[in-house]
Simulated scan of single mutants.
Amino acid sequence: MNPTIEYINRSRALLTTIEQQADAIQQAAQWFSQTILAGRMVHLFGSGHSRIMVEEMWPRYGSFPGFNPIVELSLSFHNLVVGANGQRQAMFLENVPGLADRILRNFDLSEQDSALVISSSGCNVVPIEMAELFQQRGIRVVALITKEHAEASTSKRQDGKKLSDFADLILDTGAPVGDAMLTIPGLDTPVAPGSTVGGAVLVNCIKAEVARLLTEAGHPPTVLSAGNVVGTERAVSLFESAYDEHAHRLAKLYERVGVPSYVSESTESVSQQQP
């Protein structure tokens, strides 16, 4: 079969797998919409190529504020491949214990928050520890993995636990073991991964369901939209409003983080005085 046609056919199979998870998608959207309606943020994290799904959720056309994309360049900056900031270093760092704690040290987390942690294998240390730390803070975790690949993979954690062990809900991209979906005659290694296709579909399904729930709750989201759809003036207004809302939500994650200072103490004093 022509590789293009075969890849398209296999991608259709991924859609079937995702369709069978409609109830789980609805549940994730319920949790995320509750977080956003509370004025908090849904934390998004993925190392390596899982960063793609983080940025697919926010910010881009057709998306809206309420999500906190946690992207560590040291874990996801791939384009140099070798040399300084190369892929070898990134692959090493995503299995360094304790790094997740250093990342989350920057945020004042709340039980009203929720999280989406993405890892196709579900076996690298940093995303596993991110999910574990979120759960320890009382935050619901949705894990986006490739189930067949994760089950066939070995955790890099010493205790053998995987991302799925620290998830309140698991979503499956539907890709095969090893991710690559095509076998080429004469080539002994498969090519063309599928987890990004499945992952992108999943996050956009969640995004659409969250938008519906927010709208039904009387708080329709401010969606980034193209000028050729809503007109140039409104497109600019939507972008400015959405970015400002993101800043306001993000401010809550920094306001009283970590060690108190005279700034955080004065802010708390002012808030207590307000009716």
Rank of each mutant, 00 (worst) to 15 (best):
F67D: 00
T232L: 12
G66T: 02
E268W: 03
E216A: 11
A150V: 01
G66P: 01
G160P: 08
R212P: 04
S269D: 14
A200C: 15
D188A: 14
S153H: 03
V71M: 03
L187R: 10
H43C: 10
S33Q: 02
L104H: 04
V177W: 05
M181A: 12
N106G: 12
F92Q: 13
D23T: 09
A22E: 13
L169M: 13
W58L: 01
S120T: 15
V54A: 03
K252A: 02
I52L: 14
E148R: 08
V259K: 12
D108M: 14
G83V: 09
K156H: 09
R12E: 05
A150T: 04
S119W: 01
A84E: 13
S76P: 06
E240W: 03
Y243L: 12
L44V: 01
N106D: 15
P65W: 02
L238S: 01
G98C: 11
H49K: 09
N95C: 10
N68A: 09
A22K: 05
L37P: 01
E209A: 15
R40F: 06
K252S: 11
H248Y: 02
R10S: 05
Q135D: 05
P193H: 04
A242R: 00
L144S: 06
P3Y: 07
W58E: 01
N204R: 12
F67R: 00
Q274Y: 08
S33M: 08
T189W: 07
S153R: 03
I145K: 00
A22F: 04
G160Q: 15
L44C: 05
I5K: 10
S266Q: 13
F45S: 08
E216N: 09
T267R: 15
G160K: 12
V82G: 05
Q26Y: 02
G198P: 14
A208C: 10
V257T: 11
Q135R: 15
T154P: 02
F45Y: 11
G83K: 03
F92N: 11
T183W: 05
S269N: 14
T267I: 13
K252L: 13
P221V: 00
M181P: 10
M53Q: 04
G194A: 12
L37D: 00
G46A: 02
I184K: 11
D168M: 03
Q136G: 02
S121I: 00
L144Q: 09
N79R: 11
V203F: 07
A251F: 11
I206S: 02
H78T: 11
P127R: 02
G218W: 08
G218L: 09
L169W: 09
D172S: 02
T17L: 03
L73E: 10
V81C: 09
